[in-house]
């Protein structure tokens, strides 16, 4: 009988620390499945962020490095330049990639580093307890925007994927979502392409994943998925950006 489902070899068989309804577990699994399918487990090197996914290396079963908050793409640059034969990816949240690490992100992209970036956008800082992220929506309440994000005080949600798409050295950017099984299948296809691009030496590839954070959106998991579809996707439309 054909085996159609199994635990990915690149994912350790352990419980995660993530909250109920969090998207990180799904994103981790998609990466592990793709690493297995592409046969690159013994070549891949992951760079974990600072944020909720700080111990992603406890869940993936391949070589990984930590990086200081925001510096994942600088660390990945160092690794990839020394070992171009390896497949190097970063896994970063919105605060890591688009606030404290904006400089590292833009310049790694502009140099056209041949790496893969998995960018988790959940519109909030999770690990530190629900503060405003660069991607927090207008009107969204967080601990540091108790009355909701306001343009005149906090500016607009930062669309860093669209900004990065302007750079000639950036080869592939797509925004996907985890709010339903069909969208998760599309997310997997996008992530796989971002890894395949690196294998084929095409260059800098980034997948932005809209990911639920029921805890700091203050809603039940099901409602968080609906909120992505009905609210978040209006500000961050999914699809290929470049």
């Amino acid at each position: 009988m054909e085996k159609v489902f199994s635990h990915p070899k690149s994912l350790r068989n352990v419980s995660t620390h993530y909250c109920a309804g969090c998207g990180h577990g799904i994103a981790h699994r998609l990466i592990a499945e793709i690493v297995d399918e592409l046969g690159i487990r013994e070549r891949v090197i992951g760079v974990a962020p600072v944020g909720c996914a700080v111990i992603a290396y406890d869940y993936w079963d391949f070589d990984c490095s930590e990086a200081a908050h925001g510096r994942a793409l600088a660390v990945a640059t160092g690794i990839k330049r020394v070992r171009p034969q390896n497949i190097v990816f970063t896994y970063q949240g919105d605060g890591d990639l688009a606030a404290i690490g904006t400089n590292e992100t833009i310049h790694a992209a502009n140099r056209g580093e041949n790496v893969t970036v998995i960018f988790i956008n959940n519109a909030v800082y999770g690990m530190t307890g629900g503060q405003m992220a660069p991607t927090t929506l207008l009107g969204q309440k967080t601990t540091t925007t108790p009355l909701g994000r306001e343009i005149k005080l906090h500016g607009y949600p930062l669309k860093i994927s669209e900004m990065l798409a302007l750079l000639p050295a950036v080869k592939y950017i797509e925004r996907v979502s985890l709010h339903s099984p069909p969208e998760i299948i599309k997310a997997k296809e996008a992530i796989k392409l971002a890894f395949q691009n690196q294998i084929d030496n095409i260059g800098f590839s980034l997948v932005e994943i809209l990911s639920p954070c029921p805890t700091y959106w203050d809603m039940p998991p099901k409602k968080a998925l609906d909120w992505i579809k009905e609210v978040m996707m209006k500000e961050f439309p999914i699809g290929r950006i470049k």
């Binding site: 090197i45 760079v47 490095s65 990086a67 200081a68 510096r71 600088a74 660390v75 990945a76 640059t77 160092g78 690794i79 990839k80 330049r81 020394v82 070992r83 390896n86 400089n103 590292e104 833009i106 310049h107």
Partner: peptide, 16 residues
């Protein structure tokens, strides 16, 4: 792009 970039690239290169 910055001193932060430089020292963290060194971190990665050394890790590799």
């Amino acid at each position: 792009e910055s001193e932060l970039g430089a020292i963290n690239m060194v971190f990665g290169a050394s890790a590799a």
